[in-house]
Nucleic acid binder design. Structure first.
Length: 821
RNA sequence: GCUCGGGUGGCGAAACCGGUAGACGCGAGGGACUUAAAAUCCCUUGGGCCAAAGCCCAUGCGGGUUCGAUCCCCGCCCCGAGCACCA
């Protein structure tokens, strides 16, 4: 066997020079516009979208490339299946990343971004993606953000944009607003100064109005289950009740409303707690307690949002006031504590220390009464509680008057209807999802298109006056003036009110980057059209997106915001669908030496040197082979060689087949069977993104092709070139040409498999005795149970395990025989 | 703490519906070719026992269901990601 395989030797691979083959085809694709889609004509459209990158100065790294190649394979496969595939790619270039980087190296983002984009474009083209570059975009282009501002105005028109005071993280040393991710352990990431919260008037979108729809629609979407779960958790629906606790103070009557998911425990509510920001705090403050309360409020106001939420030690202060528990009629004290959050529910809670861990802890610290109102089955109702009893599945209500003995579920219903009759409560649903704050006190983003006028208030910029262009200013650096960078440019912000003409002032905040990315997929097909954000005929043809691939780090915000914006535009009659992405799959993460790639670790891999050394085809195929696409894996240099070897062998085999005189036969029967099995397998694997096993199947076929001393037939290699094409498009084009084919392999279609040929006529039947595998028999595919038993018993090696008469025979046709004795 | 992933050879992994555990690849060992090396090609490669035929053990740990469990159920341990006082 030493000489086996001699007919395919390395001499033939000498002709395979990835660099020249790849550049040749990249040039050809560009000249022949192979990757451009006629978006207006396209009879069978397929929109294969990938999340657009932030064009960093370091360039595209292998993590980006992994995602893009994964999408590219899917797109190329769809094209081979006969669809008109549209695979656009643009740049998400606004935002704090670019701004901070520009500040750090002392350059202007407007100069930096075009450079970064050019570098990305070079890298992306070199990787051989089937991107339609005639339809690219950048969120920083006024022609693009003009329409981002338009989206804002549509939301405003619908009453879905509003302004309110909200907390931001403020660094007293840098004198600037920080994003949550710039706050590390309660301190500014740059100077380590403790961060404070400040209240600023900011723009919000009413995404919480859409909470239920955003939740309900998830059931209809073909998305990664993990992504849907993340969205469900983020929306955080909880069913419960709102209960009113009356308060009498200085002859005045008021009520404190609380939200609870456990109305069944209302008899155990022994005190109330308000968030420090609760509006009733002032009117409930007793004279004796005033200074303590003021101290406490000042203390919690100073703490930044991140730290405050990570405090788990319970602190608080008594208001001096009491409320009446509507169930027991008892007077209970009202406290203030920062463990209650103003932004959830009503900003006030009824504390049930017996059945809530946090309340238990608080009651223990301040010596407040703890009452048991739920028992485990058979437990004594007077048994003391050493910790909160939160089990509610098997809980029985106690110490709650006529509700005693009910299950928790029943008591929830009954107590809520009792409170309803008294006018003291009602069943409500609450969501964790908060409204979306889109204001950023920064420079590098689209200005929010609003003009403030002393007489007319906040007036939207007229749509015909868009875009509000972000001015090129040198001092975009946040400084101690304490305002947004644009607020230092009077010549820019002073402008006439669109309504009354009086001198007004532009909004000087810019909008969140997530707004840029919440609608970009609508723009791609219409890139180049100036009059509208998206042409309605093109939008109807191409959207919703057929396949969207991206990282799970955007599982919540980006995908939720995109869905929200799409729903709003749908409700306005502008879009004919309310969900933007029919199918979404989250790809895995590429790590390096067991760790996440990051600049600080210094383990970011830029693909350029690998592409130079091995070729784009090898790097692409390697990335897809290193692990399951939806899980990712470790980028290891050593393993690329195996994929390169495969491509070399592919080259050699096809060259031999194409040059051989007598290679036009129908192919060897066994090889052809393996080929058709491979066609079936690769065609099954690609749609479920099982790229690693698809590559393995092609390698396996390559091994079969090379086995024995023979020259491969054209019929044995031609379909293989088509199978390889999505993964390694350049070598596929070149070999397709070498085989004498006209035109791009991507217009040649996907090979059909012959299912009769693909199935073996003989199978290996596994024979077990008592469930233990004892051997296998080569038998006809359709063998009957009786014949199989007879065949097995004939084999001494098998029958020796069958001691006595079989008690039971388990026969799985075509698979396995199990004899139980 | 909660939610979602995951734990399989020296390593990356496969096993799609409960039916041969380890496909495919890397690495390693041996061999062919070569003056030599690289490249290429061939063979071996989970662990143990044995001269061999063969047998036993093995999918994080402990139980269970089943003729049969990497896969399903119960109870743990560990790793990764996200959320985190959400009442």
């Amino acid at each position: 066997m030493n000489e086996a395989g001699n007919s395919i030797r390395n001499e033939e691979t000498a002709g395979y020079d990835p660099a020249s083959v790849e550049l040749k085809w990249q040039q050809s694709w560009s000249e022949r516009r192979t990757n451009e889609t006629d978006v207006a004509q396209a009879p069978d459209p397929f929109y294969a979208l990938m999340m657009f990158p932030y064009p960093s100065a370091e360039g595209l790294h292998v993590g980006n490339l992994f995602a893009f190649v994964g999408n590219d394979i899917y797109g190329r496969f769809q094209r081979l299946q006969g669809h008109n595939v549209f695979e656009p790619l643009g740049y998400d270039a606004f935002g704090i990343h670019s701004e901070n980087y520009a500040l750090k190296i002392g350059r202007h983002p407007m100069d930096l971004i075009p450079q970064n984009i050019a570098n990305f474009r070079r890298q992306l083209e070199r990787a051989g993606l089937m991107v339609d570059w005639s339809k690219t975009l950048s969120t920083t282009d006024p022609e693009y953000y003009k329409w981002t501002q338009w989206v804002f105005l549509q939301l405003l028109k619908q009453g879905l944009a509003y302004k309110k005071q909200a907390a931001v993280n403020w660094c007293p040393s840098c004198k600037t607003v920080l994003a949550n991710e710039q706050v590390i352990g309660g301190a500014c990431e740059r100077c380590d100064t403790p961060v404070e919260q400040r209240f600023l008037s900011q723009w919000f979108f009413r995404i919480s109005d859409y909470a239920q729809r955003l939740l309900t629609n998830l059931d209809k979407l073909d998305w990664s289950e993990s992504t849907k779960t993340a969205q469900r958790n983020w929306i955080g629906r909880s069913e419960g009740a709102e209960i009113s606790f009356p308060v009498k103070r200085n002859g005045e009557e008021m009520a404190i409303r609380v939200f609870t998911t456990r109305p069944d425990t209302v008899f155990g509510a022994t005190y109330l707690v308000l968030a420090p920001e609760h509006p009733l705090v002032g009117s409930l403050t007793g004279a004796l307690h005033k200074s303590a309360i003021e101290q406490y409020l000042a203390r919690s106001a100073k703490q930044d949002v991140v730290t405050r939420k990570s405090n788990t030690d319970k602190t608080g202060v008594f208001t001096g006031s009491y409320a009446t528990n509507p169930a027991t009629g008892e007077e209970i004290p009202i406290w203030i504590s920062d463990y209650v959050l103003m932004e959830y529910g009503t900003g006030a809670i009824m504390a049930v220390p017996g059945h809530d861990e946090r309340d238990f802890e608080f009651a223990t610290v301040f010596g407040l009464p703890i009452v048991r109102v739920v028992c485990a089955q058979g437990e004594e109702p007077s048994a003391p509680l050493t910790e909160a009893f939160t089990e509610n599945e098997r809980g029985i209500i106690v110490n709650s008057g006529k509700f005693d003995g009910m299950t928790v579920a029943t008591a929830k219903r009954e107590i809520v209807s009792m409170l309803e009759r008294k006018g003291a409560g009602r069943a409500v649903v609450n969501y964790r999802l908060h409204d979306w704050c889109i204001s950023r006190q920064r420079y590098w983003g689209p200005p929010i298109p609003i003009i403030y006028c002393d007489d007319c208030g906040a007036v939207p910029v007229s749509e015909k006056d868009l875009p509000v262009v972000l001015p090129h200013v040198e001092d975009f650096k946040p400084d101690d003036s304490g305002v947004s960078p644009l607020a230092r440019h009077e010549d820019w912000y002073r402008v006439a009110c669109p309504k009354c003409g009086k001198m007004g002032r532009r909004e000087t905040d810019v909008s969140d980057t997530f707004l840029d990315s919440a609608w970009y997929f609508l723009r791609y097909p219409s890139v180049g059209i100036d009059e509208v954000p998206f042409d309605s005929a093109l939008t109807q043809k191409w959207l919703p997106v057929n396949s969207y691939i991206g990282g799970n780090e955007h599982a919540v915000l980006h995908l939720l915001y995109s869905r929200f914006v799409t729903m709003v535009l749908h409700d306005m009659g502008i879009l004919g669908f309310e969900e933007p992405f029919t199918r979404f799959r989250a790809h895995g993460l590429i790590i390096r030496n067991g760790a996440k790639m990051s600049k600080s670790r210094g383990n970011v891999v830029i693909p350029d040197q690998y592409i130079e050394k091995w070729g784009a085809d090898a790097v692409r195929t390697y990335l897809m082979f290193l692990g399951p696409f939806e899980e990712g894996g470790d980028f290891r240099d050593a393993s690329i060689s195996g994929v390169k070897r495969f491509l070399d062998r592919l080259w050699a085999s096809v060259m031999v087949a194409s040059e051989s005189e007598d290679a036009n036969g129908t192919g060897d029967h066994d090889v052809m069977r393996k080929l058709h099995q491979t066609i079936r397998k690769v065609g099954d694997d690609i749609p479920r993104l099982s790229y690693n096993t698809a590559v393995a199947a092609m390698m396996e076929y390559m091994n079969a092709l090379r086995r024995g001393e023979r020259t491969p037939a054209r019929a044995e290699v031609e379909p293989l070139v088509q199978l390889v094409a999505p993964f390694a498009p350049h070598i596929a084009e070149e070999l397709w040409e070498k085989l004498g084919k006209e035109g791009s392999v991507f217009d040649a279609g996907w090979p059909a498999f012959d299912s009769a040929l693909a199935s073996d006529e003989k199978i290996e039947l596994v024979v077990q005795v008592n469930g233990k595998t004892r051997g296998k028999l080569s038998v006809p595919r359709d063998i009957t149970q009786d014949d199989a038993v007879a065949a097995a018993m004939k084999e001494q090696t098998l029958s020796k395990f069958v001691i006595g008469a079989p008690r039971k025979i388990v026969f799985v046709p075509g698979r396995l025989l199990n004899i139980v004795v």
